[in-house]
Write a protein that binds this DNA or RNA. Structure first.
Lengths: 138, 138
DNA sequence: GACAAATGATACCACGATGGTATCATTAAG
DNA sequence: CTTAATGATACCATCGTGGTATCATTTGTC
């Protein structure tokens, strides 16, 4: 299982990179050479981030993207939502309604509790936090 | 996202059902009519449980399965492992090694922390706990 | 102005995991 | 002997995800 999709993961890395030097224009080519992120996929990813208001784009030669928000204002949880939709650990109920377990599903309840704990932590985590870790770590 | 695979989910329901009357032989046909679980799929699922030592099987007419362990000795986490393999929230590192993020991946570290919390809770949860919930709730 | 290098928008593809089915052999109750 | 169950497999279909390709547009540089 993977809590994070590739797209989310890549997005976070790209944003972390751009946050080091917020005013610089970063192209997907740069992300490829600097971080090894696959260029075509990153195009799609960054376009999504731009449409969602996290990045500004500069078209044309020497173009690319710039970060639009403070690292402390970017929650990992929100990025996950953008790329992965509604975040939940147990969504069987919704899509195919094979669950007649409305009342008789104690397992769901437990999973739901764990989900709550997890989401709480996720919602607190920002890019700024990751930058701190990054500097502290190595 | 789904923390639990269908197979795990079904397995838990079947076991919960069987635990109500531990000495009775339960067939997949019964599970289908009583719980609405799809018979062919349940066959596979219960066979897996039998091979893993959770159920005994009775072949032939009037055959089926019986529970082999005490509800308190069946951890949901172990069932998940059987049907879903190694449980983890971030396994990108292993399979395709595109992560050169050994040192530079603060996000992984955070996910790992959350995973620890989640697994701790999951490992504590047994079928007996679920039975208690079931009786308490409605 | 021409070219190169970038994004915008979109459509498409490939693979794997998962949920689910089908088949044949074997066993045992009635 | 028939029926109803499991044992053991092999197979299939669908979907999400990761990834690619294409064409149009924009813009800096020579």
């Amino acid at each position: 299982m993977n809590l994070l999709a590739r797209s989310t993961d890549y997005a976070v890395r790209a944003i972390l990179f751009m946050a080091q030097d917020p005013d610089q224009v970063t192209s997907t080519a740069e992300l490829e050479s600097e971080l090894g992120l696959p260029r075509p996929f990153m195009r799609k990813t960054l376009q999504t981030l731009q449409k969602s208001g996290y990045l500004d784009s500069v078209k044309g030669n020497k173009g690319g993207f710039t970060l639009n928000r403070l690292p402390s204002a970017i929650r990992v949880f929100d990025l996950m939502t953008i790329f992965q939709g509604h975040i939940s650990l147990g969504e069987c109920l919704f899509k195919k309604e094979l669950c007649s377990c409305v009342k008789s599903c104690p397992l769901r309840k437990e999973v739901k509790k764990m989900e709550l704990g997890l989401l709480e932590r996720l919602k607190k985590l920002t890019i700024a936090d990751l930058m701190k870790d990054q500097k502290a770590g190595i």
